[in-house]
Amino acid sequence: MDPELPIVDAHHHLWSLPDFEYLAPQFQHDLATGHRVEATVYVECLSNYLSQGPESLQAVGETRFVVEQATSHAQSGASTRLCEAIVGWADLSLGAAVEAVLHAHADAGGGRFRGLRARPTWHEDTRIHPAQTGGPHFLLQAPVLEAVRALGRLDLSLDLWLYHTQLEDVLTLADQCPETRLVLNHCGGPLGVGPYEGQRSEVFLRWRQSMRQLAALPQLRVKLGGLAMPRMGFALDQAPVAPGSECLARLWAPYLETCIELLGAERCMFESNFPVDQVGCSYGVLWNTFKRVTQGCSASERLRLFAGTATDTYRLTPLKF
């Protein structure tokens, strides 16, 4: 659908595991499925850390690895600007001392490093989150707040992956760190498993109320995607046949449209979350889904949603239309 619509994939990963490899060649296979993906944003996934040196700096190895992947991809002649921005990881418990890690990421990133992602996902029900680390209010700890303020001082952003039950903490975080740009991942994590299985309407109402409050934060951006993950409860990984874009559009439109309505196209951006969301659909079907959901948007709104907001948020090379 709409093959000429420019896309910036605002969120993807690369990794090499013993039983699964998804590196630049595999991603290029997905990129070559008919959509006009101009550039991508890489987001950390605990991959290729350094095995030596201070523990606080070992995550810098991931940034180095991504630069190597992006350079190799560019040398292959591929048109997509792979990993034009890199969102890395650092231990926010370091407080203001996190600045040393940020500078190390920037040095390793060759001009691509744009900020960090925090993953304070926590739930008391182990069916949702088996590893109970970090505690229920990690983001509100004093050292973490200092680290988030350090990001703002350096004009770096903070991506956030947490569940809909934790969104109130984002309000407090934004209030305490008003100069730091916050990017909420995966539509704010509306859960659909464990105690929320069969409670989609109730969860949606609670999630929408939280998103309405978050929409008042001028420094907040939201990534639209991640809904194929099993925790979201759509059971796409159990479907006997992979669903098409029409089916997915019906399932996901309430969440995607609510975010766009509340925050506007200028603060929302689409993400593939690949290869994680590969469990639910193919790369081509995913972008067709997003294009179906936004058919009622204006041309300028679609340009923002599919490319413009990500370009501005992560300071990418401006697209030429």
Rank of each mutant, 00 (worst) to 15 (best):
F270W: 00
S16D: 06
R153N: 07
R208G: 08
E124W: 13
L167F: 03
D175S: 12
N48L: 03
G296Y: 05
A150L: 06
D91Q: 13
T133R: 07
K223W: 00
V37P: 03
V41W: 03
A108V: 06
P275D: 02
L102Y: 02
D2I: 04
V37M: 14
L263V: 04
F290C: 06
H12D: 00
L160D: 03
G115S: 14
L191F: 04
L160F: 09
G264T: 05
L31K: 08
E179T: 09
L171A: 11
T133P: 11
L162F: 14
V183T: 05
C45S: 11
P120D: 07
A307V: 12
L227C: 07
N288P: 15
L167E: 02
S72K: 06
L205F: 01
E21H: 10
L286Y: 04
E4S: 09
L256G: 07
A147N: 01
L205I: 11
R114W: 03
P243Q: 15
W15D: 05
Y283C: 06
P218V: 02
G61P: 14
L151I: 08
Q176W: 07
Q52L: 08
L220P: 01
P190R: 02
Q176M: 09
G34M: 09
L227V: 08
V170S: 06
A239C: 04
I86A: 06
G110S: 04
L256V: 05
G77Q: 04
L191E: 00
L220E: 07
G34Y: 08
A142K: 09
G53Q: 07
F20V: 10
A85L: 04
V279R: 13
D155L: 05
Q238H: 10
Q75N: 05
E197D: 12
H13I: 04
L5Y: 13
V241W: 08
E99H: 06
S298G: 07
G134I: 02
Q69G: 00
D30Q: 09
G152E: 04
P195H: 09
D91E: 14
L167Q: 05
W287S: 03
G53W: 14
V144W: 15
F274E: 02
